[in-house]
Design a binder for these strands. Structure first.
Lengths: 199, 199
DNA sequence: CTCGATTTTGAGAGTAGCTGTCACTTTCTG
DNA sequence: CAGAAAGTGACAGCTACTCTCAAAATCGAG
């Protein structure tokens, strides 16, 4: 999980982490209990035993509580570390099984909660899409490096955008089914893409 | 009622249309002049000489003023009317040149304003993406009909999602260049896709 | 033209997310 | 132990957005 900075546990850091998790957990609970819109920041703050101001010090917006994600950075790193002889699509598929395969049962639980919540609240869906679209540029860069081309290359960018589209479909597709198949769904979509999208 | 036989919209309708356009035009002007976030609904209402309540009767949100779009429905219809022997990608390319080719100079101007504004305001970008993602289902349905498969078919949906991804890249790509090339960019991306995304 | 029904409108009050300020407390460091 | 740094809470303010209610404009029919 986190990288221990050796002799730096620090009371402050620990307390901060605890507060942050308390806010997030209570928020998620309240959201699922009474709905996202119906839950006010004030309620969350009260449940987590902090003041509303403190809430905003930990999460810049109410959305952020749901959207804060520790998976993406790990995924990017994993992708970068895949053997260079793999094609981008192969590397991506390997990354997916790698990252999502090593998730604890608890993390899975949280992740599923997140997904359901996001899917059911348009506001959150929009925010997630925005994030996804922003990461296209980053992804394109890594793809460019892998195939030895310019990151600004039109075809490289287009490829990255297309893969994003796949992720999108897989996302909504997986929501209609038990989450266990999320990886399978994505993998299937990428395989379809790999074969040139035959219809 | 002097002329019973003409289908003129009626005073009420015309006034409504005029008010709506007044709001939209003043809003766009203020947005470009002083920025989106810095422009309040109150200012727009005042400029358009209506009350804030009236503003919200014409546009449910401040975003809607920018996002309201008369192109999409036309595009969907055009796509549907392309000769059935065309493959989905061919039909899509034909649709693009069809719809965007028949735009008046004035419409182009507004469209470009919209695009620049949307691109520069994350909030608007997110909203556009949400819309785009919702139209994937509609697009998938039409694709399914064209190739004679089930709209729920996984590959059909994946295809639709991928095309969406292309639209996304084309969108941001085109913004870095004079808008005239928007069609060209999209067309090029779709051609790349048609050839199986070679890298 | 007139009257009654419908629609459009404006005013005002209220909610909630978010920002910013300031003083107070807790934790860390030397 | 003292001072610096960081975390916290109370409060005030702005704006998007909602809701209600009554006044005004528009329309259809007699």
């Amino acid at each position: 999980m986190a990288q221990p900075s050796d002799d730096r546990p620090g009371l402050r850091e620990r307390k901060k982490a605890r507060t942050r998790r308390a806010i997030r957990d209570h928020a998620m609970r309240l959201f699922t209990e009474q709905g996202y819109a119906a839950t006010t920041v004030e309620q969350i703050a009260e449940a987590a035993e902090v003041s509303p101001s403190t809430f905003f010090r930990y999460f810049p917006t109410k959305e952020e509580v749901v959207l804060a994600d520790d998976i993406d950075p790990v995924a990017f790193e994993s992708f970068q570390n895949q053997p260079p002889e793999m094609t981008p699509l192969e590397a991506l598929r390997a990354t997916l099984t790698d990252v999502f395969g090593n998730l604890s049962e608890e993390d899975w639980e949280l992740e599923r909660h997140r997904q359901v919540l996001i899917a059911s609240v348009p506001e959150l869906r929009a925010a997630v899409l925005l994030r996804l679209s922003e990461s296209v540029a980053v992804f394109a860069e890594q793809v460019a490096k892998r195939v030895g081309r310019d990151p600004a290359d039109f075809e490289v960018r287009n490829f990255a955008g297309v893969v994003l589209g796949t992720a999108l479909t897989g996302f909504s597709e997986a929501l209609e089914q038990p989450m266990k198949t999320y990886i399978e769904t994505m993998d299937r979509a990428l395989e379809h893409l790999q074969q040139g999208l035959p219809l």
